[in-house]
């Protein structure tokens, strides 16, 4: 009995010491097998129970079982401790330079002019405008005649045109789409914008290009007023350039509108205090507009006693150049990807 008790104490002391100094989980498993396994120390202790008295047996048995639990607990907590140490070590080995650039995931960049198209289109779609398109190769009739610009009209001077023959030309503005749309819709109402590419006989330089883009707008309905035009433009300009922008209208001249107005927006760069972009006068000329000339409505197939309308137009390159600070129109068509990558 004394002998067994001593053994129990020794096993307890040895096992707990070994567990405490164990360095890895494999070694812990060896310890477990050594003490708790089928051929382990505790099993052999239990085997010795037979040699004890009936009274002694439950006492020693209890002790041995208690020791088993004690060793098991010690093993478990040692295991947790070791596992944590091992994962810590693994994590540490997986340390990376977090500042290294990530693997490149390429995304496509929108052309800056397309970005302007999309922005303007979204605003007008929201205002109930649909989108109308027309051909880039146009007839004299749609490009000039129907727009109240007969052959002798002095306004044709400023639009030096690229011709294919007497009748066919490259449209010099998106306005012919107005006529084509009216022809399709008359006598119903029209509410469209017409984005597109236009052409002029211009030698290419920093501010001129033989091809550029416009967005035109047209509303035809019963009793449309000049003041409605101003309302629509004010909404557009605030959405496009910011709610605190102001607009200013100046009398202008376009053969296809009467009355006509040039529309200025308070400078989008300086807000109106004056900067090089607005030539220090606080305003940027951004749109041409007016109520549709009756001759144009007539050409579109409308009764001018009942129908009136308004129209406006803007240059896409100009807006992009102002908005992004692009100094040279040629950049749009050179397509240097270092340029394109600056937009989205």
């Amino acid at each position: 009995m004394e002998n067994i008790n001593e053994k129990i104490i020794k096993i307890q002391k040895d096992a707990l010491n070994e567990i405490k100094s164990s360095k890895d989980s494999k070694n812990l498993e060896d310890i477990r097998i050594n003490y708790l396994g089928k051929k382990g120390e505790l099993t052999s202790l239990l085997k010795m129970l037979g040699s004890l008295t009936k009274e002694e047996r439950p006492v020693i048995g209890g002790r041995v079982n208690k020791l088993r639990e004690e060793i098991e607990d010690a093993l478990n907590s040692a295991l947790i401790r070791l596992k944590k140490a091992e994962t810590d070590k693994k994590f540490e080995s997986e340390k990376v330079d977090l500042t290294l650039m990530g693997r490149i995931h390429k995304y496509g960049h929108r052309h800056p002019l397309q970005a302007i198209f999309d922005e303007v289109e979204e605003i007008f779609l929201g205002m109930g405008f649909s989108i109308a398109e027309g051909p880039e190769i146009e007839s004299e009739y749609y490009n000039f005649e129907a727009l109240n610009m007969p052959a002798s009209h002095p306004a044709r001077d400023s639009q030096d045109t690229l011709y294919f023959n007497k009748e066919l030309l490259l449209r010099t503005h998106t306005s012919p789409v107005q006529i084509r749309t009216m022809e399709k819709m008359a006598p119903g109402p029209v509410r469209v914008i017409c984005p597109g590419r236009v052409f002029r006989r211009d030698t290419i330089d920093a501010t001129h290009s033989p091809q550029f883009h416009q967005i035109e707008g047209l509303v035809v309905d019963k009793d449309v007023k000049f003041s409605d035009l101003i309302g629509a433009l004010e909404v557009f300009i605030k959405k496009m350039f910011g709610e605190d922008r102001k607009i200013r209208l100046r009398p202008g001249f376009f053969p296809f509108t009467e009355p006509s107005a040039e529309v200025d927006v308070s400078c989008i760069i300086c807000g109106g205090t004056g900067c090089p972009a607005c030539k220090h006068n606080g305003w940027l000329e951004i749109l041409g507009s007016g109520t549709v000339h009756p001759n144009v409505l007539k050409a579109g197939g409308y009764d001018t006693e009942i129908f009136t309308g308004y129209a406006f137009g803007m240059g896409v390159e100009r807006i992009a150049m102002l908005k992004y600070g692009i100094p040279d129109i040629r950049l749009f068509f050179e397509n240097d990807i270092r340029f394109l990558h600056q937009f989205r």
């Binding site: 109930g128 405008f129 007023k225 000049f226 101003i230 009355p259 006509s260």
Partner: peptide, 24 residues
Amino acid sequence: AEEVARIHGYNNIKVTYFPSIGAG
């Protein structure tokens, strides 16, 4: 009408709206 408007002053014209009845 344009003569009257430009002398009266374009920016003295009170803004109105002609909203859409359809969807764009």
